[in-house]
Simulated scan of single mutants.
Amino acid sequence: MTRLLRTAGQLAAIVLLFAAVSAFSAWPVYRQTPPGTAVLLLTFVHGSDRKAECRRLTPEEIAKLPANMRRTEVCPRRRMPLHVELDVDGRTVFAAELPPTGIAGDGASRVYRRFVLPAGEHELAVRMRDKASTRGFDHERSGRVALAPDQLMVIDFRADSGEFVFR
């Protein structure tokens, strides 16, 4: 009889635990963004120009190098930082100098920024400078987009075509 009561008690405890887990799996409701909003994601990886141009070595400099390391020109590895700006409805929401990655500073720069915006129409403008100039931008795109509630829109950069993509 005690064995039957113990088994019934264990079963009741398991059922209560299962009911509690089931209740908390659907309640309280969790949303990552407030109702009526959309997410704009600015994310890309891009390598800028090198800080300095390649330089041809003189015959004397080539002769000084070990035989297995002789080359005709030397190219510095370090890259320029990227300057990226994003405007939403005429207001700058992101502006940053993105340093190159890697120990030697020769890797691509990376950006990953998330913006929660109200659903509806927005005017977007994104600009990037990846050359050694200090004024102006090398790549720009602007446009009007309509964001639905709970929509995720990504701004990406395609290096092969040199343009920003809104999708």
Results as ranks from 00 to 15, higher is better:
5 L>P: 10
10 Q>N: 15
13 A>P: 02
14 I>T: 14
16 L>Q: 10
17 L>Y: 03
17 L>S: 12
17 L>W: 08
18 F>L: 14
18 F>C: 12
22 S>G: 05
23 A>S: 12
24 F>A: 09
27 W>A: 13
30 Y>C: 14
30 Y>S: 15
31 R>K: 13
34 P>Y: 01
35 P>V: 05
35 P>G: 08
39 V>Q: 06
44 F>R: 00
45 V>L: 08
46 H>S: 05
48 S>Q: 00
50 R>V: 04
51 K>H: 11
52 A>G: 13
57 L>M: 03
61 E>R: 07
62 I>S: 05
69 M>H: 05
70 R>H: 14
71 R>T: 07
72 T>H: 14
73 E>I: 09
78 R>D: 14
81 P>W: 02
86 L>C: 08
87 D>C: 04
89 D>H: 00
90 G>T: 05
92 T>F: 08
101 T>R: 02
102 G>H: 05
104 A>K: 12
104 A>F: 11
105 G>L: 00
109 S>A: 04
109 S>Y: 08
117 L>W: 02
117 L>D: 00
121 E>C: 12
121 E>I: 14
126 V>A: 00
128 M>G: 01
134 T>W: 09
137 F>P: 08
141 R>M: 03
142 S>H: 12
144 R>W: 02
151 Q>D: 01
153 M>R: 04
155 I>F: 00
156 D>A: 12
161 S>V: 13
164 F>P: 04
167 R>G: 15
